[in-house]
Amino acid sequence: MPVVTVPVAMRWSDMDAYGHVNNTDFMRYTEQARIEALALVKSGPDTGTLVVRHEVEYRVPLEYHRDGVLVDIWVTRIGGAGFDLAYEVATTHAGERVVHAVSASTMVMYSFSRATPRRIEPAERELLESLSGPPVQFRRPSR
């Protein structure tokens, strides 16, 4: 499966009063990975991608790590104007990978000057297809 792995730095302040990373920081980690992984999926200065839906499932509590986290990101669906992304937020301990959260986002290509979604262009589709993989397997299915 084609995956982009993006290392994301952590901050000491990402931890909450319980000593583990706050749920909102997981969204920051996936956002950073998404920005880096999709930097080439943009046709011009007027266009971009917007998140229209996001789902996350926490698996193992995450504490601060100097090495940060690794966020794997891949594409699970491509439509006319939108696409879905999957993520795994993980760390490595003694050579063993620990997945702390899985997540999925629905994205839409957007024209800022027209303030409307726009179709995915052929070059963008080709790049997205090169990152295509299976959907996230959440433990509890979406409603």
Results as ranks from 00 to 15, higher is better:
49 T>K: 02
140 R>C: 11
13 S>D: 14
99 V>S: 05
52 V>F: 00
18 Y>S: 12
59 R>T: 02
45 P>D: 13
141 P>C: 12
16 D>N: 12
31 E>L: 13
106 T>N: 09
85 L>H: 03
51 V>Y: 12
81 A>Q: 08
12 W>M: 09
16 D>P: 00
64 Y>Q: 09
45 P>V: 04
118 R>W: 09
135 P>S: 03
7 P>H: 15
43 S>M: 10
86 A>K: 11
23 N>P: 00
79 G>C: 02
73 I>L: 07
115 A>E: 13
78 I>H: 01
32 Q>K: 07
32 Q>H: 09
96 E>G: 01
34 R>L: 02
139 R>S: 12
14 D>W: 07
72 D>A: 02
39 A>D: 10
22 N>A: 15
107 M>I: 13
80 G>H: 06
52 V>H: 00
109 M>T: 12
99 V>K: 02
112 F>S: 06
102 V>R: 15
15 M>T: 14
101 A>T: 00
28 R>W: 12
42 K>I: 13
105 S>Q: 10
125 R>L: 07
40 L>S: 14
99 V>D: 04
142 S>V: 14
122 P>Y: 14
73 I>K: 03
115 A>V: 02
5 T>Y: 14
82 G>I: 01
33 A>L: 10
27 M>G: 03
132 S>T: 06
135 P>H: 05
15 M>Y: 11
90 A>W: 04
15 M>E: 15
103 S>E: 07
91 T>M: 02
67 D>V: 03
1 M>N: 11
22 N>G: 12
133 G>W: 13
72 D>R: 08
94 A>N: 06
130 S>L: 12
62 L>C: 09
40 L>M: 11
65 H>R: 11
96 E>N: 06
61 P>L: 06
122 P>L: 14
21 V>A: 11
39 A>T: 06
88 E>H: 07
89 V>M: 03
7 P>M: 15
32 Q>S: 10
141 P>H: 14
129 E>W: 13
78 I>K: 05
74 W>R: 07
52 V>A: 08
119 R>A: 11
18 Y>F: 11
131 L>N: 01
67 D>I: 03
131 L>C: 05
133 G>Y: 11
5 T>I: 15
18 Y>N: 11
73 I>D: 03
45 P>I: 01
99 V>I: 11
4 V>H: 09
131 L>W: 04
120 I>M: 06
35 I>D: 07
117 P>E: 08
18 Y>C: 10
118 R>V: 00
99 V>R: 02
42 K>A: 13
110 Y>T: 07
36 E>C: 07
140 R>I: 15
4 V>E: 08
48 G>P: 00
26 F>W: 13
4 V>M: 09
